[in-house]
Amino acid sequence: TEDEKKIQELLKRANGDVSKAEKLAQSQGNEELARRLREYANK
């Protein structure tokens, strides 16, 4: 999905570090994506 692409892109930029990727999403003002990242990471 589009969200998964965004999540994978963020994870790439954060070198696979979920908490960093989450902070990136939040810094972009994207709380929804940050929440999805957390769920994605907890799979």
Rank of each mutant, 00 (worst) to 15 (best):
T1C: 11
T1P: 12
T1R: 12
T1M: 12
T1V: 12
T1I: 13
T1N: 13
E2Y: 13
E2G: 09
E2F: 13
E2I: 13
E2V: 10
D3G: 07
D3L: 15
D3R: 06
D3S: 08
D3M: 15
D3V: 14
D3Y: 15
E4Y: 13
E4A: 10
E4C: 14
E4W: 15
E4D: 13
E4R: 08
E4K: 07
K5Q: 12
K5L: 11
K5D: 12
K5I: 12
K6V: 14
K6I: 15
K6E: 15
K6S: 11
K6F: 13
K6A: 15
I7L: 12
I7T: 02
I7D: 01
I7R: 01
I7P: 00
I7F: 09
I7C: 06
I7E: 01
I7M: 11
I7G: 01
Q8Y: 12
Q8P: 02
Q8S: 06
Q8F: 10
E9F: 04
E9M: 07
E9G: 04
L10D: 00
L10I: 10
L11Y: 02
L11W: 02
L11P: 01
L11I: 12
L11F: 03
L11R: 00
L11A: 01
K12R: 13
K12G: 06
K12L: 12
K12E: 10
K12M: 12
K12Q: 11
K12T: 08
R13F: 10
R13V: 12
A14C: 13
A14K: 00
A14G: 02
A14H: 05
A14Q: 03
N15Y: 07
N15I: 01
N15W: 07
N15P: 01
N15D: 09
N15Q: 09
G16D: 03
G16P: 00
G16T: 01
G16S: 02
G16M: 05
G16L: 03
G16K: 02
G16I: 01
G16R: 02
D17L: 04
D17V: 04
D17A: 02
D17W: 04
D17N: 09
D17I: 04
V18N: 02
V18T: 05
V18F: 14
V18I: 13
V18A: 08
V18W: 15
V18P: 08
V18K: 03
V18D: 01
V18C: 06
S19G: 12
S19A: 14
S19T: 11
S19P: 05
S19R: 14
S19W: 14
S19N: 12
S19Y: 13
K20N: 05
K20F: 11
K20W: 10
K20M: 13
K20T: 08
K20V: 14
K20P: 01
K20D: 03
A21V: 02
A21R: 00
A21T: 00
A21N: 00
A21I: 03
A21G: 02
A21L: 04
E22M: 15
E22H: 07
E22W: 11
E22K: 03
E22P: 00
E22A: 15
K23R: 10
K23H: 08
K23I: 10
K23M: 12
K23N: 06
L24G: 01
L24N: 03
L24C: 05
L24I: 12
A25E: 02
A25Y: 01
A25I: 03
A25T: 01
A25F: 02
A25L: 10
A25R: 01
A25W: 02
A25D: 01
Q26K: 12
Q26W: 12
Q26H: 10
Q26P: 00
Q26E: 08
S27E: 15
S27N: 09
S27R: 08
S27F: 09
S27I: 11
Q28I: 11
Q28R: 04
Q28N: 07
Q28P: 02
G29E: 04
G29P: 01
G29H: 05
G29L: 04
G29N: 05
G29V: 02
G29W: 04
G29I: 02
N30T: 04
N30K: 06
N30S: 08
E31R: 06
E31C: 12
E31S: 10
E31H: 14
E31K: 08
E31Q: 08
E31N: 08
E31P: 11
E32Q: 07
E32Y: 07
E32S: 06
E32A: 08
E32F: 05
E32T: 06
E32V: 05
E32G: 05
E32P: 03
E32K: 05
L33E: 02
L33F: 05
L33I: 06
L33N: 01
A34R: 04
A34V: 09
A34W: 04
A34N: 02
A34T: 03
A34F: 04
A34G: 05
A34S: 04
A34H: 01
A34L: 09
A34P: 01
R35M: 11
R35W: 07
R35F: 09
R35V: 10
R35C: 10
R35Q: 13
R36P: 03
R36W: 10
R36I: 15
R36K: 15
R36A: 14
R36E: 07
R36L: 15
R36Y: 09
L37C: 03
L37Q: 00
L37N: 00
L37W: 00
L37E: 02
L37H: 00
L37K: 00
R38E: 03
R38Y: 04
R38H: 06
R38P: 00
R38M: 04
R38S: 05
R38G: 03
R38K: 07
R38D: 02
R38V: 07
E39M: 05
E39K: 03
E39D: 09
E39Q: 06
Y40G: 03
Y40R: 04
Y40S: 03
Y40P: 00
Y40C: 14
Y40A: 04
Y40D: 02
A41F: 14
A41M: 14
A41W: 14
A41P: 03
A41V: 13
A41G: 07
A41H: 08
N42V: 11
N42F: 09
N42M: 14
N42G: 08
N42A: 14
K43C: 10
K43Q: 11
K43S: 11
K43P: 06
K43F: 09
